[in-house]
Nucleic acid binder design. Structure first.
Lengths: 230, 230
DNA sequence: CAGTTACGCTACGACTCGTAGCGAAAGCAG
DNA sequence: CTGCTTTCGCTACGAGTCGTAGCGTAACTG
């Protein structure tokens, strides 16, 4: 859950514009005084954003179009999200909540299942249109990079940690000795899985077939001969 | 789709706008009749594009700004490239010409060298700003996708083929038996190397250190125990 | 020379962005 | 109910960008 329910409170605009500084600890019950924001409008806007992404792509997406499609005034849109980037992050982030670690009883099966889930996610038009463009903007906008990390990257990395822990509990992998090395190992495995699947689907433009998933998983498991059996 | 341009093709734009399949196969002499296009303007535009990418990023790059910086009329720009996407492909593609297969005498050393080269390339601001954005547009624009493939992806994939052939000549890898399987193996290795490095640098935002390169190369070489020795 | 094409320049319509102002609506505290 | 506050939809606006058209001039060919 990307902690973006009330995406931009009057203070959040400052957070987005200014810097990573002191956001007042307003964590509970902001004690609304006037007319509350319409939750229905939130949902309508995010749905409209996803639909527009799938139809028009990142370049064709305009705030005015989203507002019209969501049957909402453009002003309402800007009251919640400061720009297109933030809006799309929130619109796409929910898609990544679907990713789950299945725990199928073997590391091989778990990896294959996660790869298949991720491949299905990347096959969606709204994902394709948004993900790379978001990453591109994220290389220049540190705020945006943080939000992408929290809403999209971290949920994925969590799966790697879960699968690894499960395999350790089963005895398939050795328990951690050096915690620092463990983090590095998780990072490299995560970048490998996510990067390879993304490159295959979004750059090479080739589909992720079960056969491909089998071969790729085999490549990952070769370092562990006892797991690499077909 | 960019509508058919008038000529749009004095040599540079031909490889650029290779989309135009109906272009006469004038591989020899197009018989220039009027005033020739300024090659200096071509270089100035591409240089200005790279500089502007590094300074302003993809989102901040405007055709007008590039034209001004290149000391060229905006019209001259549009005479050669139909849109920002095509211009940036050509501006960035030349960077990938630097990639070479060193042939250092062992597959491990070759892979590490190529990874290091690619990492250096991705560390450049103009690459970071452009590459992911281009890939994003390429998921919707088939013409652009082809140009990216030809100008950027294929040069990279060629390195994998070269390194693989060299390793086979050395006897480190078995010769090809099934040519179809060989292509698939090259594809999966290529997507793994390119995707992982891209994800590490552009998404995770972590640098590619020699130590990381060593570990990642080790992961790739595990399937070949005789090569996996440190 | 004439013929052809590229060039720089200006101007334009269409579009998007993000903001401001307005009156009306929807909550909350008394 | 009556204020008070905030959001809502709507209209309008300035700024900026896009891609194109028209014009006179420059450069190169035969």
């Amino acid at each position: 859950m990307p902690a973006a329910q009330p995406p931009m409170t009057p203070e959040t605009a400052e957070t987005a514009a200014a810097a990573d500084g002191a956001a007042p600890a307003d964590s509970t019950a902001p004690r609304a005084k006037g007319r509350p924001r319409s939750a229905a409008a939130d949902r309508a806007i995010l749905d409209a954003t996803r639909e527009a992404l799938a139809e028009l792509g990142w370049g064709g997406l305009t705030m005015g179009h989203v507002a019209t499609r969501a049957k909402v005034a453009k002003t309402t849109l800007y009251r919640r999200w400061p720009s297109k980037n933030e809006l799309v992050v929130d619109a796409v982030a929910s898609l990544f909540d679907e990713l789950v670690m299945p725990d199928l009883g073997s590391l091989r099966a778990d990896i294959e299942a996660v790869v298949a889930q991720f491949a299905d996610l990347l096959a969606r038009p709204e994902s394709q249109a948004a993900l790379l463009a978001l990453f591109a903007e994220g290389t220049r906008d540190r705020q945006l990079h943080r939000r992408i990390r929290e809403a999209i990257v971290d949920p994925q990395k969590r799966l790697v940690r879960q699968g690894r822990s499960a395999a350790q509990a089963r005895g398939e992998l050795a328990p951690d000795t050096d915690p620092v090395a463990a983090v590095e190992e998780i990072d490299i495995i995560f970048d490998t899985i996510a990067g390879t699947v993304e490159h295959r689907v979004l750059v090479s433009g080739e589909p992720i077939t079960p056969e491909w998933t089998r071969r790729f998983t085999g490549l990952l498991l070769e370092p562990f001969p006892s797991l690499a059996t077909d």
